[in-house]
Design a protein around this nucleic acid. Sequence first.
DNA 1: ATTGTATATAACGTATCGGTTATAGAACTG
DNA 2: CAGTTCTATAACCGATACGTTATATACAAT
Lengths: 116, 116
Amino acid sequence: MTFTERLSVTFAALADPTRRAILARLASGDASVMELAKPFEMSQPAISKHLRVLERAGLISRSRDAQRRPCRIEARPLAEANGWLEKYRKIWEGNFQRLDALLHELKSQEKKRRHN
Amino acid sequence: MTFTERLSVTFAALADPTRRAILARLASGDASVMELAKPFEMSQPAISKHLRVLERAGLISRSRDAQRRPCRIEARPLAEANGWLEKYRKIWEGNFQRLDALLHELKSQEKKRRHN
DNA sequence: ATTGTATATAACGTATCGGTTATAGAACTG
DNA sequence: CAGTTCTATAACCGATACGTTATATACAAT
């Protein structure tokens, strides 16, 4: 898979709120499929599918613990996506200067809305 | 549209290599639809559709210049996406320390592969 | 061996995506 | 006015996305 293709599958994986929530959960530690499925009003196969998407994108890896398949977040594709976005930092820094203010605003939004 | 919904449409818009290439082009200045379409082996309506996706995601805005509808990159959603990814910086910094090396590596890849 | 628990796969429906061609509309040009 | 250029829209098509239910598989526990 080329760099561009990896970017595409990474962004596509991040485009779904359920998958972002799963990554957010995994950011605080590994978890099994059932543990990940619990917060969602969604069938277990649906979660398994989301995990397969994340795995194909390289955003998670899975090991084995008895029947469980614990998932671990893999940060490399996130770093690549971030690297791509970094190219545009200059633009938005130029276009509307108050980047610090914006990032601060984003952080409070995060806390308020408990977004994914 | 909620913050989460905006994130979803932003990442979905970024998941297509054509649209990323369009944004890359716009990063170096506004352009008309025809100018944007030229590099691609793709019909003009296809490009118009991509532009509509980008516009709905708030990633571009359009003005009018005679028959032309010049497109301008809008950085805010990119900043929001970047803000989301920032949450995971600690992870990838922790998981494999050499972030500087990685970002450097990403930059040379960009130049080599002329990726989108 | 049987039962239970955790996960994956299969088959399916509906919606959206990304492209096409054909056509329409809007603004310039002669 | 007629013709040309730029862009958007409509109708269509095949592929993919995201969910479902039903079933299969893998391991554990009794």
